[in-house]
């Protein structure tokens, strides 16, 4: 197994002091892999992502990134170190144009910005055509792509994605997830929270299941896909719904 890119050990965190939502949660993500986090609503998935992104105080445990302790590092400093966070909602600036959104994310790119912008627009043709439109006018799927493009603009080593397919049509959801897969081919690691468990498990490398703020099962994604218990809890309803 190659060196972990991200490791959380016994992380306890929450929104208000003395009321932890996460209880000693641990997780490992490896380079150029998709590490999936699943679990019921309110399990603490978004909370975990936010704690890693430096948006919530961690009261116990440790988070390391590339071997360095980042437990108490500010979000903007983490971004500079190569961790991009795509929030579950409100992940673009609606009153700015698409181009301005991207420019904002490219501010740190310096002289490399024009080339990086060109590459992003190539990668997301839907955005290229709409550069001068307000981001608020984009469709749900286009917004997710913009949010991902903005994350990529910071040239991250690790992207934290919180339900990028939420609210999208099955086709758009599939596109977003497949895009995530292509990103890992360029060496980016992805920590992904998803409700489209079935689809996501097919794309992911490894998966952690959370419930009530605690680790449940974890294992290789394909093994969990065929795991009876997981199947019953998370996949059964969907299979029946699809039938």
């Amino acid at each position: 197994m190659p060196e972990a890119v991200l490791e959380a050990r016994g992380v306890t965190a929450g929104y208000v002091p003395d009321l932890p939502i996460l209880h000693e949660v641990s997780l490992v993500a490896h380079p150029a892999q998709i590490t999936l986090i699943i679990g019921p609503n309110g399990a603490g998935k978004s909370t975990l992502i936010k704690a890693i992104a430096g948006l919530l105080p961690v009261s116990a445990g440790q988070i390391t990134f590339g071997g360095a302790d980042i437990t108490h590092i500010r979000t903007d400093q983490l971004a500079a170190r190569g961790i991009a966070y795509v929030p579950q909602t409100d992940n673009i600036f609606r009153s700015l144009t698409i181009r301005q959104n991207l420019d904002l994310a490219l501010r740190r790119a310096g002289a490399g910005a024009p080339a990086r912008l060109a590459r992003l627009l190539e990668q997301f043709p839907a955005l290229a055509d709409k550069q001068r439109d307000k981001a608020g006018t984009l469709s749900g799927g286009q917004r997710q792509f913009l949010a991902i493009a903005m994350a990529l603009a910071t040239a991250p080593k690790l992207i934290l994605m919180d339900e990028p397919s939420a609210g999208l049509s099955p086709k758009a959801a599939q596109e977003v997830l497949e895009h995530a897969r292509t990103l890992t081919r360029s060496g980016v690691s992805i920590l992904l929270v998803e409700q489209n468990v079935n689809q996501a498990l097919r794309l992911a490398d490894h998966c952690f299941i959370l419930a009530e703020g605690r680790n449940q099962i974890d294992g290789p994604a394909d093994a969990l896909l065929n795991n009876k218990v997981v199947g019953e809890i998370y996949l059964g309803a969907r299979r029946m719904g699809a039938a």
Binding site: L55, R74, D76, A79, P87, D90, N91, F93, R107
Partner: peptide
């Protein structure tokens, strides 16, 4: 508009 999103792009609000 959105402080957290700005932070996650490396801005220091």
């Amino acid at each position: 508009e959105d402080e957290e999103a700005a932070q996650s792009l490396g801005k220091n609000p």
